[in-house]
Structure formats: structure tokens, C-alpha cells
């Protein structure tokens, strides 16, 4: 029992962190906070891969005198790529947030929805004044 718990502890923590990030993304209305939640999710994924690659009493995958058991280098390589790509996506997401704030003056999802609705209504009334039928949403 204890062995199972210790052997799976890392995975369980990874899942808790993953769900923490997921919760931030779906439950919080602030776009910057959503990007941060995405970052938590990402980091938990990194931990999962590295945990899978670890070997009991192994050493870092660098050739050394007297070392016989190395950890798996492949997850490290994949996660190195993932970290850098993750930062690229974070930068893009944050740039989008800045752009949205510039256009709408807010980063809250609820406000954005209200503004969108109002713009749609304005467009519809403008269209009716020109003698056209309003476009149904």
C-alpha cells in the first residue's frame, strides 16, 4: 500500500497541478489569469514526462566514470523542446491579451461579451435605419 502511494505520488501531484491549471482556465474570467493557468498546466505536464524518465539510483544522462545506470535522456529532450515552445505560446497569448485590452479596454470575459453584444445591436440598428433587414444573430 505505502509502496503504491509512494510510487504513484508524483503522478497524483501532477494531476492535482494539472487540474489546478485547468480550473484556472475555465473558471476565471481574466484573460491574463487564464494564460497563467495554462502555464501551470504545462509545467505539470513537464513534471509528468520527467517523472516517467527517472530511474531509481540512476544518474544524470552525462557520461561519467563509474556510472552505469543513467536516467532516460529522451523525455528530457522532448521537454526541453516543450519548454521553449511553451514560452512562445505564452508570449503569443499575452500579446493577444494586450491587443484585446487595447481594443476593448478590458480583460474580463464578461465585459467583453457585453461589449460584443452592444456592438452587434448598434450594427443592427444602423442597418435598419439604412432600410435593410437586421441580420439575425
Amino acid at each position: 500500500m505505502l509502496e503504491t502511494v509512494l510510487g504513484l505520488y508524483n503522478y497524483w501531484i501532477v494531476i492535482i497541478l494539472m487540474m489546478a491549471g485547468f480550473y484556472t482556465v475555465i473558471a476565471r474570467g481574466n484573460l491574463a489569469k487564464k494564460v497563467i493557468g495554462l502555464n501551470i498546466f504545462q509545467t505539470s505536464m513537464f513534471l509528468m514526462y520527467i517523472t516517467m524518465g527517472a530511474v531509481e539510483s540512476g544518474t544524470a544522462p552525462i557520461v561519467a566514470e563509474g556510472a552505469t545506470l543513467y536516467t532516460n535522456p529522451l523525455p528530457s529532450v522532448l521537454i526541453l523542446t516543450a519548454i521553449v515552445v511553451g514560452v512562445a505560446t505564452t508570449a503569443l497569448g499575452l500579446a493577444l491579451a494586450v491587443r484585446i485590452r487595447e481594443a476593448y479596454g478590458t480583460l474580463e470575459e464578461d465585459d467583453l461579451r457585453v461589449l460584443e453584444d452592444r456592438q452587434d445591436t448598434l450594427r443592427d440598428t444602423a442597418a435598419t435605419q439604412d432600410g435593410e433587414q437586421p441580420v439575425s444573430p
Binding site: A60, P61, I79, V84
Partner: peptide, 9 residues
Amino acid sequence: LDAVDVAFT
């Protein structure tokens, strides 16, 4: 977890 390259990145 012995993934030093990942750690410093």
C-alpha cells in the same frame, strides 16, 4: 529527478 538540462532551461 536527474534531468539537469531541463532544470536549467
